[in-house]
């Protein structure tokens, strides 16, 4: 427990606590405002669209906010010192070595993916996906007021990505990952000598296909099996969804938009699936799954 308290009160980690509190508060605020608007029918913002003068009505809010922020920054800076550890030393690796807090969600994903996915491909997809949002969400409703009813899918998807995959993984990566990036509950002591004995398995091995041939080269059958799984996952789900649910989704969005939405959505869920694939076997005393798809050049 003392470990956990030490980590949570580390000056550099205060933003994470603020983030958690902030995210809960603002989610609640937005939800309750959205609900109120949904019940009312006409959003309340629409009744407040008469014009007011910026001076004084906006300027005074900005002025107060400025004073408040400055006061908080001064108090924060007087009471907590920015960390300054021992001088940089290339031959002394701290354990655990952690990236700055806002990247810890990505570092946490290193448990589940190789660096080229967790560190390069996923961040790229996140950025491009974010930029694509205005162009793929063509729902005209819900522009400029809080609501839930008018855009359920958009809000649920974005909130899942932001709150669960981004914010909560940051919290896990910072607060619950100790030496060797091993998982420790808050009440457990960080034991630097703890070694998690894990024999990894690949998905194909659960189906009786060994990943490697006796000469240690990659088994082509396993490669093909993996390719079928991954490519199948990316194609079958979007097509199935079209067939099963309403096909006018395609008419509304067009093929290109639909494909992008499906790709981004399936990728996001894929991250969750990979986490589940790795963690659930452990619950049953089985070997955790490391790769779904192994090739001589890259592994997924």
């Amino acid at each position: 427990m003392s470990n956990f308290l030490a980590i949570i009160t580390k000056p550099d980690n205060i933003p994470i606590t603020l983030l958690l509190v902030g995210v809960v508060f603002f989610s609640w605020l937005a939800l309750s405002k959205g609900k109120r608007n949904d019940v009312r029918g006409t959003p309340i913002e629409a009744t407040k669209d008469d014009k007011i003068q910026v001076w004084p009505y906006l300027v005074r809010v900005e002025f107060l906010a400025t004073i408040l922020v400055l006061a908080i920054m001064v108090i924060w800076s007087v009471s907590l010192n920015a960390p300054l550890e021992a001088m940089a030393n290339k031959s002394l690796t701290p354990n655990p070595s952690k990236a700055p807090w806002y990247f810890l969600g990505l570092q946490e994903l290193l448990v589940y993916f190789d660096p080229w996915i967790a560190g390069v491909v996923l961040p790229t997809i996140i950025l491009i996906g974010l930029m694509a949002i205005p162009y793929i969400d063509i729902n005209e409703k819900g522009n400029g007021y809080y609501t839930f009813k008018d855009r359920k899918f958009a809000i649920l998807t974005f909130s899942f990505g932001f709150l669960v995959l981004w914010v909560s993984l940051i919290a896990v990566g910072t607060f619950l990952r100790g030496p060797g990036w091993n998982f420790f509950w808050p009440w457990e002591k960080w034991d630097p000598h703890y070694v998690a004995v894990l024999t990894n398995a690949d998905l194909s091995e659960y189906f009786g296909i060994p990943t490697h041939l006796p000469d240690a080269s990659v088994n082509p059958v396993a490669s093909i099996f993996g390719a079928v799984c991954v490519i199948g996952y990316y194609t079958i789900i979007p097509i199935y969804w079209l067939k099963k649910r309403n096909t006018d989704i395609l008419k509304k969005l067009g093929l290109l938009r639909y494909s992008i939405v499906a790709f981004l959505f399936v990728t996001m869920i894929g991250v969750v699936i990979k986490i589940i694939l790795r963690q659930t076997p452990l619950l049953f005393g089985l070997n955790p799954i490391k790769y779904v798809w192994v090739t001589p050049w890259f592994n997924v």
């Binding site: 550099d12 960390p83 300054l84 550890e85 021992a86 001088m87 940089a88 030393n89 290339k90 002394l92 690796t93 701290p94 070595s97 952690k98 990236a99 700055p100 990247f103 990505l106 570092q107 190789d114 660096p115 080229w116 967790a118 560190g119 390069v120 491909v121 050049w297 890259f298």
Partner: peptide, 27 residues
């Protein structure tokens, strides 16, 4: 330039090795 900073940046920039096509450990 203390321990915290170089190791955090080492961890962060190590990802770049694995960049597909452009990193020496990437696909």
């Amino acid at each position: 330039w203390d321990q915290l900073s170089i190791w955090a940046v080492t961890v962060g920039t190590n990802m770049a090795r694995a960049t597909p096509l452009l990193g020496h450990e990437g696909p």
